[in-house]
Write a protein that binds this DNA or RNA. Sequence first.
DNA 1: AGAAATTTGGCACTGAGTGACTTTTGTGAA
DNA 2: TTCACAAAAGTCACTCAGTGCCAAATTTCT
Lengths: 192, 192
Amino acid sequence: MSLRERKKDKTRADLLAAALELFEKQGFAETTIHQIADAVDVSARTLLRYFPTKEDVVVSWVEEGMSVFLSSFADRPASEPAHVSLLASARAMLAHYQSQAEFYLTIERAIASSPAIRARKLEMSARLAEEVTELLRQRRGTAGGGDWQVLLYPALVFAMLRAVIGRWVAENGDRDLLALFDEASSLVTFAA
Amino acid sequence: MSLRERKKDKTRADLLAAALELFEKQGFAETTIHQIADAVDVSARTLLRYFPTKEDVVVSWVEEGMSVFLSSFADRPASEPAHVSLLASARAMLAHYQSQAEFYLTIERAIASSPAIRARKLEMSARLAEEVTELLRQRRGTAGGGDWQVLLYPALVFAMLRAVIGRWVAENGDRDLLALFDEASSLVTFAA
DNA sequence: AGAAATTTGGCACTGAGTGACTTTTGTGAA
DNA sequence: TTCACAAAAGTCACTCAGTGCCAAATTTCT
């Protein structure tokens, strides 16, 4: 990894750290992009090149979790029922969260604390659900899942994920994410 | 109803109409608050007194639907299982949508067309889910529902609602919302 | 008609975000 | 090492959303 890339990674991480600290101390709306940038000795313009919006300084980090979901999903056999693949990939993603529990706990706390950031995350999550719907549709040539499954099941699984993560955060990460997820998913049955 | 109130209602409605038209023609991001206000012969300052943000010019109108959900929910017996109440109130809300199909179709189309508006709506929907969770918790003294039901079921039902409305919009309102909802809900079973 | 209350407009301001241009800094070859 | 090139960072000027404040207009009530 080149010096350039290492510096970029460091700046990204520093910006996140500074943002989290300021958001916690003063709140999201009360913190300016300029303050965050100053704390890292970088211009506001540069911050906005790293992150397209103020929300993204925090929320972009959940994309990693989402890519874990997607790559797990890609590995599932196309012959598998939709809901089985989805639940398996959800568990894979949560395992990733659990493996960096402190990190994601901090981020999710910041997300939960501000309506604006939360809105952005919900939008990302909705977009991901649509992407997964599309992937399921492409399966349909081979193994199906009706029109509804393909649309509904991703939406429901992501709603479950949000609920589970929400509770995890509310309980300060005391319990295991996968255990929480299994408790939740035992209450819902998907038609095959 | 006084002249003042009638005028206010008219201005609200005019602003919505102007916004929808401009958003459709040029897109949400490309339309300024000023353009919307001009189209209604009102100052931008006034627009922002009617609607706190540009997104709200469109999205605030779904609050009516939400209040239908809530008032239906309040009428359900507290002894009823959580998911029964939730599904019943969801149907009540969709019946309201269906009764003003053209109106909601137009609005939901605009919402779907812009990530920013969609994010706002998702946030509102998440907030409503939390409110309903709170109401369910208050039931628990009398008739229960475990900790998980109370958190998870509202989240899932609202996810179902979004999926159903999404499909309804995608199909141009051709099919009946309640029929769509029943199709969707037949694929999911909630543990009692 | 006229005083009181409410609504609207105008203005100045902050902060997010963008585009264009210049300066700095890392990279790769001679 | 040094020098040319590319990538990144900074600067500046700008647009637009949103807010607070005060003055002008409009509605309401007497």
